[in-house]
Design a protein around this nucleic acid. Structure first.
Length: 325
DNA sequence: TTCCCGGAAT
DNA sequence: ATTCCGGGAA
């Protein structure tokens, strides 16, 4: 079999598999650009299962781009709370205020805040039928295994993805093909323990004998970090403050400081002599492993934390201190 | 518990 | 190159 007929067969097998095995996700088959864009932003760094409830909540609260533009940033974060990567929500809100309609080409989409190469390509292909390859982590992994690339350069992956897209165009719309490749990576060609037995493309796969070698997992250094949180409780609830930019930017939470000296600085800030330790909370970011020692003290003020957008971290801290959320 | 995964902005 | 988050698998 020559190279071209192999490529044709590969594309056909993947498309056939996709038609039979794709999940029935709420945004599948969706053509409305606003909804497609929302789903793709939600799917950045987030599994489909986790994105689903947020997709429904978001659309229930902001059914259109206009409705989103009318909202305040805090209302948007309120719906997004718990989903992580809150810059996505802030960018979505900015985007809604920048444009009156979702632009229809990859080049224009790429200029919107929060849309990088992947998301712009996904929206352009799914909502507008533009034949551009959407390369996410799934596609990168699938292609790396098919051609046994241990450390694939971005340009190489992109070139191969575009080549396959040109072939797929003969058989399916661009958005269908992109989603087929992504779905294969999500369901079968998974990062760990891929199910090659179920793979429609295994006969074309040069990495099938050792799939977990391709692509080589990236090393990341995770620094342990110790923090102190001070939960100030009063008759009306808890003292909360809005976090500035950076970590958990825009969300609300309890006062926190880095160790060492964190507790002393917190006590000084609030004019307190002492606080009572209530326990510890562990929380992980990509690059940091947090250990938060939680202290508690009485306070005059306070508010109901159930009315503010909170991160998982602050939720854990408040629950440890007895808050009901 | 620990380990590991993932797009965009800067 | 580094910074953002949370959840699922091992």
């Amino acid at each position: 079999m020559d190279e071209n007929s192999a490529k044709e067969a590969l594309v056909g097998r993947v498309l056939g598999w996709y038609q039979k095995h794709r999940r029935l996700l709420p945004w599948r088959g969706e053509q409305d650009p606003y909804r497609v864009l929302l789903s793709e932003v939600l799917l950045q760094q987030t599994r489909a299962a986790q994105a689903i409830p947020y997709y429904h909540r978001f659309l229930a609260r902001f059914p259109t781009l206009e409705a989103l533009a009318q909202a305040t940033e805090e209302e948007v974060l309120w719906v997004w709370q718990g989903c992580g990567y809150y810059t996505r929500a802030r960018n979505l809100h900015r985007l809604a205020r920048q444009v009156s309609a979702i632009p229809s080409s990859y080049a224009e989409l790429r200029r919107l805040p929060g849309l990088g190469p992947y998301t712009a390509a996904a929206v352009a292909s799914i909502a507008f039928g533009e034949p551009v390859a959407a390369v996410d982590g799934n596609v990168r992994r699938v292609l790396a295994r098919l051609w046994a690339w241990e450390q694939p350069k971005g340009g190489l992956v992109r070139a191969k993805a575009e080549e396959l897209m040109r072939e797929a165009l003969r058989r399916a719309p661009p958005g269908e093909w992109n989603q087929a490749l992504i779905e294969l990576g999500a369901l079968v060609c998974t990062p760990r323990r891929p199910e090659c037995k179920r793979c429609p493309a295994v006969q074309f796969c040069q990495g099938r004998e050792a799939p977990e070698r391709y692509p080589r997992p990236q090393v990341r250094k995770q620094q342990p970090q110790e923090m102190v949180a001070l939960v100030l409780q009063g008759p009306a609830g808890f003292h909360l403050e809005k976090r500035p930019g950076g970590v958990l930017g825009g969300l609300w939470g309890v006062p926190m400081e880095e160790e060492p000296g964190g507790l002393e600085r917190l006590l000084a800030r609030f004019g307190l002599k002492q606080a009572q330790k209530v326990g510890e909370v562990r929380h992980e970011f990509t690059h940091r492993r947090l250990l938060v020692r939680v202290y508690q003290a009485p306070w005059e003020g306070g508010e109901n934390p159930g009315l503010r957008p909170l991160s998982r971290l602050d939720r854990k801290v408040l629950e440890l201190a007895g808050a009901r959320l």
